[in-house]
Amino acid sequence: MKTAVVLLPGLNRDRDMIAALTKISGTPPVTIWQTETEIADDIDLVVVPGGFSYGDYLRCGAIAARMPVLRALKEKAERGTRVIGVCNGFQILVEAGLLPGALMRNASLKFVCREVKLEVANASTSFTSGYTQGQIIRCPVAHHDGNYVADETTLKSIEDKGQVVFRYAEGTNPNGSMNDIAGIVNEAGNVLGMMPHPENLIEAAHGGDDGRALFAAALEVAA
């Protein structure tokens, strides 16, 4: 599978993501700068990594979401290509309207950088099929605005349709997210957004590899 990583000014987790995709897929991803208006047809997985695009000005991800590459990504996602947004990438996908809801300031008002536990709330997506339903995995988080919010109707809808794929487990909700939501997919199931950083837990040198199965599933390779 051919992968791509979207680059925007202020992102800083792009190198970690490129390293993870290279190690798990065996081939380095291509990079796509924010001004690109098209994403090649042969790309099977596009990742929007974490960081602080545009300095988090206005709202986290708001300005990045209005860049040409996001319009191209939206069109590509509508054609069924897999998309993953991690941390700021999740905020960007939400601001761009690829995923429902919004990510607000952490309830504690503090930046949180620590490890949390995630429950796999839906193991039947193309991103989570390497886990078992209800499995608890470890994953690091590092963010200031990860407090997932949606109106009552949207929240009920994503819960009913199994779009909540990861929840903070065992009392580790670091940000006040509604229903402990840590990651969601779109209705079609080909776009995943999550605040935790699975790319930072993929090998022994990271102290664990709980995040590896996510990329392996999305890339359809052995974990």
Binding site: A62, G101, A102, V149
Partner: peptide, 9 residues
């Protein structure tokens, strides 16, 4: 609608 406000919230 397009940028200054996130009308979700």
């Amino acid at each position: 609608d397009k940028l200054l406000a996130n009308t979700v919230i």
